[in-house]
């Protein structure tokens, strides 16, 4: 769908999708948006790293991490990227049925991850590490909470696509829409891999 960049000399045919970069406006906008999101998560991750040992005499989040549990939910989220890819390849083949199935699977895997996060948060609070306990816990809940909200919005977008497909509004020519939602979804995934490594796996000194 994307032709070469338009130039005065070569551009003679009439292609409604031609852009100067060859990338559609929407996709370019999503890339830029994800670029800005890097800075957002960069700020939040830096905040957590600065504060992760500041417990004000109370329990630190690092003290009560359940690494095996979080590893499993991280794996679930990672798998959802795979199903997202499968959804995209399905719609590229024009198979709306399968697209819907994979989108639904992706959303459900995301839902499992969110469920895991809710469980983790409640067990943390039960163990005395709440949002207002100390700078470390405030930073932990803010960072993972922001990520959780991003995943939830991704689920909302996926479900919107599923509903659109049920209504027959999602057609093979909308493959790019699925691709763009997929970009967002993969980004949220990658951010989690980063968070998981930096927050959970690198021990506090």
């Amino acid at each position: 769908m994307s032709t070469a960049t338009a130039s005065a000399d070569t551009h003679t045919e009439h292609d409604p999708h031609a852009t100067n970069t060859g990338i559609s406006n929407t996709k370019l906008a999503m890339w830029l948006f994800l670029g800005t999101e890097c800075l957002l998560f960069g700020g939040l991750i830096s905040t957590y790293l600065l504060y992760k040992t500041r417990g004000n005499g109370k329990t630190l989040p690092t003290d009560i991490f359940d690494i095996p549990f979080t590893s499993v939910s991280s794996f679930v989220l990672l798998m959802s990227s795979l199903t997202m890819v499968l959804a995209l390849s399905a719609i590229n083949r024009g198979d709306i049925e399968r697209t819907r199935g994979w989108l639904l699977t992706t959303a459900m895997l995301g839902g499992v991850f969110i469920g895991g996060q809710v469980y983790e948060f409640t067990s943390f609070v039960r163990e005395g590490v709440g949002f207002t306990t100390n700078p470390a816990s405030s930073a932990f809940f803010t960072l993972t909470g922001f990520h959780g909200v991003h995943v939830s919005l991704g689920i909302l977008m996926l479900m919107s696509l599923v509903v659109a497909s049920v209504q027959g509004r999602l057609k093979p020519q909308n493959a790019e829409t699925v691709e763009i939602v997929g970009l967002y979804w993969h980004f949220v995934d990658i951010v989690w891999i980063f968070i998981f490594t930096v927050i959970y796996l690198i021990p506090a000194e």
Binding site: M1, P16, F33, M157, R169, Q173, I180, V181
Partner: peptide, 21 residues
């Protein structure tokens, strides 16, 4: 947009949802 109507729409959705968030 004539080829794919929802193109711009969904972007509006995505970015605006992010903003709303």
């Amino acid at each position: 947009h004539d080829a794919d109507h929802s193109d711009d729409d969904d972007d509006g959705d995505a970015v605006a949802v992010g903003a709303d968030d």
